[in-house]
Amino acid sequence: MSVDLQTVKRVAHLARIAVSEEDAERMTGELNAILGFVEQLNEVDVSGVEPMTSVTPMEMKKRRDVVTEGGKAADIVANAPATEENFFLVPKVVE
């Protein structure tokens, strides 16, 4: 399988990365080189093989559903580019 310029632009939008016409053209070539390389996986017989879900056989750790920490609003917003009264500020999303 290979990608064309339109697909690259669509994927870039899905990934929320702005691309110029020139970027998209360069990426088309690079992505096709990588997709060409991974193509060889199709020759592997995987009938009856389960997809891997966990590399170490272990049960997912669980903890009790209780509040263990909190009250850190100031820490959480400390690194944000724009905040007001412990809220993240973003451009208007609702008219």
Partner: peptide
């Protein structure tokens, strides 16, 4: 480049062909 490849192989219609196949090979 890697975000783009990742987004593509996980996108609708390609997930089984790429990601699922790779996770099966990983088990092998």
């Amino acid at each position: 480049r890697r975000i783009m490849i990742g987004t593509y192989v996980l996108s609708a219609g390609y997930y089984d062909a790429y990601y699922l196949q790779a996770q099966k090979v990983r088990n092998l």
